Amino acid sequence: MPNLEEAIRERAYHLWVADGQPDGKAEVHWMHAQYEILAASVANPAVADIAVTKPARRARSPKSKTRAD
């Protein structure tokens, strides 16, 4: 996994699917996924090296740049 947030997002998605894709439980699935990923990284520090990396920088669009002239 490129970063922790992506790993949690993917696990939360799988938990949501396994739970029958209910509406209104996104936060519950996110928290369970977060717990699982972080617990796994504590149990096996090698997981933390893989899952926790600096997120990629987002490219700025040319329109978002402003100048103070």
Score class of each variant (00 low, 15 high):
36 E>Y: 02
39 A>F: 03
40 A>Y: 04
40 A>I: 04
21 Q>K: 15
68 A>M: 10
45 P>Q: 01
29 H>T: 11
46 A>V: 06
23 D>I: 09
39 A>E: 09
19 D>T: 09
45 P>N: 02
45 P>W: 01
39 A>L: 05
43 A>L: 12
57 R>L: 13
25 K>T: 12
17 V>K: 13
15 L>W: 01
46 A>P: 00
8 I>C: 01
28 V>I: 13
9 R>P: 05
56 A>R: 08
11 R>G: 01
24 G>L: 07
2 P>H: 06
40 A>M: 07
7 A>T: 11
34 Q>T: 08
34 Q>H: 12
64 S>V: 10
36 E>A: 15
28 V>Q: 09
43 A>V: 10
23 D>T: 13
15 L>Y: 03
23 D>F: 08
26 A>E: 10
56 A>H: 04
19 D>C: 10
56 A>L: 09
40 A>R: 12
38 L>R: 15
37 I>Y: 01
20 G>V: 10
4 L>N: 03
6 E>I: 06
30 W>N: 08
64 S>M: 11
13 Y>N: 15
11 R>Q: 05
14 H>T: 10
46 A>M: 03
16 W>G: 06
12 A>F: 03
18 A>I: 02
27 E>W: 12
47 V>R: 02
48 A>S: 04
9 R>K: 15
47 V>F: 07
38 L>W: 05
31 M>R: 15
28 V>M: 07
12 A>V: 07
2 P>K: 09
24 G>M: 11
62 P>R: 12
4 L>H: 04
6 E>L: 08
41 S>K: 02
58 R>S: 13
61 S>T: 13
32 H>V: 07
8 I>W: 01
18 A>N: 14
65 K>D: 10
24 G>N: 13
50 I>G: 00
7 A>G: 03
7 A>S: 09
65 K>I: 14
26 A>C: 06
31 M>N: 15
27 E>G: 13
1 M>R: 07
15 L>H: 04
24 G>Y: 05
57 R>I: 11
62 P>F: 07
51 A>R: 02
26 A>S: 15
9 R>V: 13
69 D>K: 14
60 R>V: 11
53 T>K: 09
53 T>D: 00
19 D>E: 15
2 P>D: 08
33 A>P: 07
52 V>F: 02
8 I>S: 00
15 L>T: 06
38 L>T: 11
8 I>G: 01
3 N>Q: 04
1 M>G: 13
52 V>H: 01
34 Q>F: 06
18 A>Y: 03
38 L>D: 02
30 W>D: 01
7 A>H: 01
14 H>C: 03
29 H>K: 10
69 D>F: 14
17 V>N: 03
69 D>V: 13
10 E>K: 15
63 K>M: 00
17 V>L: 09
20 G>Y: 08
38 L>C: 10
44 N>T: 14
62 P>Y: 08
58 R>D: 05
10 E>Q: 15
44 N>Y: 07
25 K>A: 11
27 E>M: 07
17 V>G: 04
17 V>W: 02
42 V>G: 03
39 A>Q: 14
63 K>N: 09
40 A>Q: 12
50 I>N: 00
1 M>H: 09
41 S>G: 03
